[in-house]
Design a protein around this nucleic acid. Sequence first.
DNA 1: TAACACTGTGTAATAATATAACATTAATAT
DNA 2: ATATTAATGTTATATTATTACACAGTGTTA
Lengths: 132, 132
Amino acid sequence: MHKEYALTKNQQIIFDLIDKSPEPMKAYSILFNVQKKGIKAPLQVYRALDKLVEIGKIHKIESRNAFIACHNSSCQVAKATAFSICEICEKVTEISSASLSKYLANFKDKDGMKYSKYNLEFFGLCKKCTLK
Amino acid sequence: MHKEYALTKNQQIIFDLIDKSPEPMKAYSILFNVQKKGIKAPLQVYRALDKLVEIGKIHKIESRNAFIACHNSSCQVAKATAFSICEICEKVTEISSASLSKYLANFKDKDGMKYSKYNLEFFGLCKKCTLK
DNA sequence: TAACACTGTGTAATAATATAACATTAATAT
DNA sequence: ATATTAATGTTATATTATTACACAGTGTTA
């Protein structure tokens, strides 16, 4: 029962770019890449990014100020995200672990508060960089 | 067996300020507040912040670009942090839950990778804001 | 003690990230 | 049709963070 958003032109251009990128993209790098398509100003990029984040098509990697497409098909809204980040090569991978998301979704703090959203970033070395 | 760092003058001034603050502080707000003590430039602030984060005296709230003092006495190094953030009043609280930290410290991804550090930010409404 | 490495400082300039304000246009709903 | 909402285009500006360079203090060590 979930409304599929039709992306607007700017949103589609920017989503396509991020979706094709093998790594998280930063706002001004996005801007540079879409200028030939008529998107000229930072604000145009940020507005599209805000919307894409809101509807869960992309996620923001807060510690890197960068954006990646969501590859977790169950993600219709940006509310529960987890990533691993390699501290050497900066490779970022979205973690989709049922047990992790279940654990965090049900987590209550000392006061019994439950939280509607979370963002988790793990840092370490990816396989490639471990071998170096 | 843990080396207690003697903070340098700039580090101490900035740590004291953050430690007294009831809420996370942003770098340029810190700068403004310490200018009367002779710290004049952004870089002086950022250098102190970097070091304080590194030795675990403060943490960065990534989604807010702000810094709070660590009140979790077992935190000697910034490697495992968890916060709750109220989306209305922006109150931030460090979560110290043994079961949460144990769960995350032992979390392995699909490839069996373990991670040396993590940062977790929960979002929701604090008690006060829930009642409004 | 001189040479060195290491860490921190001071300063100026600039880069990188993000938003405010305002006018306009497109899409949707009643 | 018209009211409403969402998205766009543009300029300017605010906010966050780093580069580059000169220098000072401390501890080592040769």
